[in-house]
Design a binder for these strands. Structure first.
Length: 737
DNA sequence: CAGTGAGCGAGCTTCCGCTTGACTT
């Protein structure tokens, strides 16, 4: 009700603002004929899109004969409280208006009644076709005889939008079927597997095609990490004095062979054999390497790069991208700074390519390639939106810096640089390598320098240090060098590392699991269910997560395996091409699946109570050790003497610097989500902070360190003691996308 | 700034994908 009023109000405001603008324009042109729109009582055609920001833009492009409203995603869907699929009768879904969305649907009906025709302009992909179909069907039922057609645009430019509106088409019912099959399959999998977990493990748990596959990746990786045995190896490095500089070179050959340096003794033996021997340059060669710019961002690559370069979680990246998309107040005007942020395509609108080339011709003429650079959409791409790029290349990071928050500017800079670079020539790097002979050993050193800096000219924030490093090697063949020292150093082979936001998203995308709109929420779900915990940037499975993954892997390996989505997608493609009957395919999947489920439901022993983890914390009431349990509100400690001793307490995360008590995580009373950390001796001790404690102590004063995050310096560690100045610098940003 | 776990048992939880909400009466 409330929402209805606001939507209507917003629409009115937008309209009157436009009217004012129109009057101004007419007045300034003076004496122009009275526009026909001024006489017209209202818009003649209703256009329905998904995003409100898009609606605004399109309405501007189409003029006053069109009214554009946004559905804001799906309005009609399966019920939340039950399966809602009639498996005995063709898997027919039970479609209802989504709770809370009736107001929007009502507004659409009201506006459609005033219109001569309706154009369904939801996104040109499978989900968009379904949104169009379900809304269209609803409108036709409410308003018999109303002409309802489908239009689609892949990019939001005036030409594209106007052309699309001139060429409406009927709905693609095969595509609608494919979406229906996807929806029904996900519902049947999710709403059957989840109750199994409620019964066997714990209430409120969940499983699904995407989240369970992601969980399995994380759990499988953890096993690899655990089973990895690091192996010791040594390297030998010589510090050599050239005419002016000191050059460091690594031993690559000893007595004509690659040295096997498995332990300290071998390494030290070689070092002493080489020490005191003269050094001279025996070979020098160079090679050139072309480094091409990367394609503009998709959701997945944006999330990966922001995680690697800026340390953002995927959730944070999307929140900031949404702000940049919706529009920023730039002093005199308001403008969206980036294109739509949920996309799987690297395609760029022609108008944007032209604008980029014009801008580059002015600012970097020497780095402008002969023709515009186009990047393919990618094999699994549904290509409903173009790549993520700045809405105008003229909004350089410097020019908008004053209007953005620190993190907004950082993310925008990534987007701007990546897009501009994608339209520039490659860099050419010359790598010079020199071999230096010392006794029976050959040492190697190399340096690289740009022959042509190419696109790196605009890359400032997003290039790693190595990419920017550039120096030459001033050594000549035959030159004698002074040996300053030869050192051996110990190393261990590195095993696989745990997934991070960046790497799990990369893996999911490569496997085709999930969509741009679900990468970040999938990670959030795994965290909320306590299947996975974040340890600094890494995603580690909990005991619960491992148990769930083990159960699902044992009984439903094909459903939660990485190949299941790929199989589903190939079926959906066939459904779209009318080469497969989705109901038949669903029968073949569902009935065996349900049979297996019923069997496991009745035979698998309950795992409840097997999740508790022993700790060495002793109960202060009875002295017995306490166990870590997962309850309704997260993890807590309980006495192992239960039910004899009913003592419970929160998990201590730090020692209170005021009274020596335990600092525990607390939630503010209802409503506010923000966590805080307080002393468990409250109200006797009132120590409290919003910054998350780390397990480290300040080397200066001994108070604990916290993770601070502020707008100036981003996230870093700091001492909690207000009168202590100890600050950790930001973690080094990692290289590689 | 509370509560969490067993039992008893009613009534609840849950999927993926599309999109932005939001208030204090």
């Amino acid at each position: 009700m409330d929402k209805t009023t606001r939507t209507a109000k917003a629409a009115t405001t937008a309209k009157s603002a436009k009217a004012v603008k129109k009057v101004k324009a007419t007045a300034s042109r003076k004496g122009s004929k009275s526009g026909k729109s001024a006489k017209s009582p209202g818009a003649k055609n209703l256009v329905i899109v998904e995003s409100p920001a898009k609606a605004k833009t399109i309405e501007k492009y189409l003029g006053s004969n069109y009214k554009v409203l946004a559905s804001m995603g799906h309005l009609i869907d399966l019920p939340k409280s039950r399966i809602g699929v009639d498996v005995e009768h063709g898997f027919e879904p039970e479609y209802l208006t989504i709770r809370g969305r009736a107001g929007v649907l009502k507004d659409l009906v009201a506006e459609a009644k005033k219109s001569e025709s309706v154009l369904l302009a939801s996104d040109p992909d499978r989900e968009g076709e379904a949104i169009a179909y379900l809304i269209g069907k609803h409108l036709e039922e409410k308003i018999p005889g109303l002409p309802v057609k489908r239009v689609a645009f892949n990019e939001i430019t005036q030409a594209a939008v106007k052309d699309a509106v001139k060429a409406p088409r009927p709905l693609d019912l095969s595509k609608v079927d494919a979406q229906k099959a996807r929806r029904v399959l996900d519902r049947l999998v999710g709403y059957n597997l989840s109750p199994l977990l409620w019964k066997k493990v714990k209430n409120g748990l969940s499983a699904g095609r995407v989240q369970s596959a992601a969980l399995k990746l994380i759990c499988d990786r953890e096993k690899e990490v655990e089973s990895f045995i690091p192996e010791e190896f040594w390297t030998i490095e010589a510090s050599l004095k050239a005419s002016r500089s000191v050059v460091k070179a690594d031993l690559v050959l000893y007595k004509g062979k690659k040295p096997q340096l498995g332990d300290e003794e071998k390494a030290k033996r070689i070092v002493s054999a080489l020490e005191g021997k003269p050094a001279s340059v025996i070979d020098k060669r160079s090679a050139e390497r072309l480094v091409r710019p990367k394609a503009p961002f998709t959701t997945s690559t944006l999330q990966q790069t922001a995680a690697n370069r800026l340390g953002f979680t995927s959730k944070k990246t999307m929140q900031i991208a949404q702000i940049l998309y919706e529009g920023i107040n730039l002093g005199s005007r308001r403008s969206g700074l980036i294109t739509y942020m949920r996309t799987d395509s690297t395609r760029i609108a022609e108008t944007a390519l032209e604008e980029a080339r014009t801008w580059l011709a002015e600012h970097y003429p020497a780095q402008l390639p002969k023709s515009a650079q186009r990047y393919s959409a990618g094999k699994q791409s549904q290509d409903a939106h173009e790549a993520i790029r700045p809405t105008s290349i003229a909004y350089t990071p410097d020019s908008v810096a004053a209007y953005l928050q620190k993190d907004e500017l950082k993310l925008y800079t990534l987007v701007w640089e990546r897009f501009v670079a994608s339209q520039m020539i490659p860099a050419l790097v010359k790598v010079v390598t020199a071999d230096i002979g010392i006794g029976d050993g050959v040492f190697r050193t190399s340096a690289s320098a740009y022959v042509e800096e190419g696109f790196y000219k605009v890359i400032k924030l997003s290039a790693s240090k190595e990419e920017k490093a550039s120096h030459s090697l001033a050594l000549e063949v035959g030159q004698d060098l002074g040996v300053e020292k030869i050192d051996a150093s110990q190393h261990f082979t590195q095993g696989p590392s745990r997934y991070t936001d960046a790497t799990i998203i990369k893996a999911l995308e490569e496997l085709g699991i999930g969509r741009p709109s679900t990468y970040a929420p999938t990670i959030s779900t795994l965290l909320e269910r306590y299947y996975v915990s974040r340890q600094s940037k890494q995603l580690a499975p909990t005991t619960l997560g491992r148990m769930i993954s083990d159960i699902l892997t044992e009984f439903f390996p094909e459903v939660i395996g990485a190949g299941f989505t790929a199989q589903m997608e190939s079926l959906l493609d066939k459904v779209e091409d009318e080469k497969a009957d989705w109901v038949q395919a669903m029968k073949e999947f569902y009935f065996p699946f349900k049979g297996k489920l019923d069997e496991v439901m009745s035979t698998l022993s309950s795992k409840k109570g097997q999740l508790d983890e022993a700790t060495d914390i002793l109960c202060e009431r009875c002295g017995k050790p306490m166990v870590k349990k997962l309850g309704r509100f997260g993890f807590f400690l309980a006495c192992s003497g239960f039910p004899g001793c009913k003592n419970t307490k929160s998990i201590p995360v730090a020692v209170c610097p005021k009274c020596g008590g335990d600092i525990v995580e607390r939630k503010n009373p209802k409503g506010k989500r923000k966590l805080f950390y307080g002393c468990n001796r409250y109200p006797a001790c009132d120590f409290v902070t919003y910054d998350k404690p780390t397990d480290k102590l300040c080397p200066k004063c001994g108070w604990f360190l916290v993770e601070k995050s502020d707008r100036v310096s981003g996230s870093h560690k700091a001492c909690i003691n207000p009168s202590c100045d100890y600050l950790h610098s930001r973690d080094e940003e990692k290289a590689e996308d």
